[in-house]
């Protein structure tokens, strides 16, 4: 007996909710997106799953994920993982991206190149090489970007006329500004000289103090004359001669100049506490008070090469000898 075949109509699944389709409590995707961005604005440090759950509990997780992914690809938001909890957070991407909306692609390229140069900045010509743009175009772009306060130019200390470009908010690196000893790209030699003298005086005082106890023996006296660069830095900072913070490295460059003056010597020892070496300094006396030859005029004479037994410059008519013998 043949039974009649009954073809059942399958129930078709609901199609995936489209952007305009109702979801949850009747919110559109655009509305959800907007709300997310609002939240991210309220929590500039980022929102996580929990916040989203609290705010829009009825929204399907899949929808949230989709929206977030779209925002990511549009580069409107950033995603990061918290260090401790390893949770995922989303936050709004910073100004430049949003502001970049009004900027065209060439400018974007230039911006990226400048951004990559970090706080050392990059020279006009190098931008040209990397972007392969021509000079006039580039200059126009740079001017525009500067106008928008996205980038700035900083004159480099190595060449007064050379300018490097970097992102507006960045602090220029020491190699550009010259470090603590440069202000407005000018080397502050007076400051250096003052610090030089000051450091020397500090070390001299230490040595004097050490000599007050000769009964303990010369070795003790010598060892008591040393000061480390850290200690010297502290003393100088306490004197408040300079307005900015002097680092130990700064002081060490000054102390090096004193070593090269022949007034102090350095001895590097390893400190039990910190890694690496501790540099200590003390004053030293020169081996001679002065060379004998500089006590006669010939030793400092500027025209000695012309001097002879015949000619205009001779010992017998030498003006310097006349002055010296007076």
């Amino acid at each position: 007996m043949a039974a009649p075949v009954v073809i059942k109509k399958e129930k078709v699944d609901d199609p995936r909710p489209s952007a305009s389709a109702d979801a949850g409590e009747g919110q559109t995707e655009a509305e959800i997106e907007r709300r997310m961005i609002e939240l991210m604005g309220e929590f500039p440090k980022g929102i996580n799953d929990k916040i989203l759950e609290t705010d829009m509990p009825n929204v399907d997780k899949k929808i949230k994920v989709a929206i977030l992914n779209r925002l990511l690809s549009q580069e409107k938001v950033n995603i990061f993982r918290a260090a401790v909890t390893k949770e995922l957070f989303w936050c709004l991407k910073q100004q430049p991206t949003s502001k970049l909306k009004g900027v065209d692609s060439e400018e974007k390229i230039v911006m990226r190149i400048i951004e990559e140069a970090g706080n050392k900045g990059i020279w006009n010509r190098d931008i040209r090489t990397k972007s392969s743009l021509n000079q006039t175009t580039l200059n126009k772009i740079l001017k525009a970007l500067e106008g928008k306060k996205l980038i700035k130019s900083v004159s480099s200390v190595s060449a007064a006329k050379k300018k490097v470009y970097m992102l507006f908010n960045l602090q220029p690196d020491r190699s550009v500004t010259g470090g603590s000893w440069y202000s407005d790209n000018e080397f502050e030699s007076e400051l250096v000289d003052v610090l030089n003298q000051q450091c020397y005086r500090i070390l001299q005082q230490k040595a004097e103090g050490a000599k007050q106890k000769p009964l303990e023996g010369p070795l003790i006296v010598r060892n008591a004359s040393f000061l480390s660069s850290k200690e010297i830095c502290q003393i100088i900072s306490d004197l408040k001669i300079v307005k900015f913070n002097l680092t130990v490295e700064d002081i060490e460059t000054i102390l090096d100049t004193l070593v090269y003056d022949g007034k102090i010597e350095m001895s590097a020892t390893t400190d039990g506490y910190s890694d690496g070496q501790v540099k200590t300094y003390r004053t030293v006396e020169k081996l001679l008070s002065s060379a004998g030859i500089v006590r006669i005029p010939c030793g400092v004479c500027p025209v000695i090469k012309m001097c002879g037994t015949v000619g205009a410059v001779q010992p017998k008519n030498c003006v310097y000898y006349d002055q010296w013998l007076d």
Partner: peptide, 8 residues
């Protein structure tokens, strides 16, 4: 220099 001083 020494010679000059002597000559002088």
């Amino acid at each position: 220099g020494l010679f000059n001083a002597m000559v002088r």
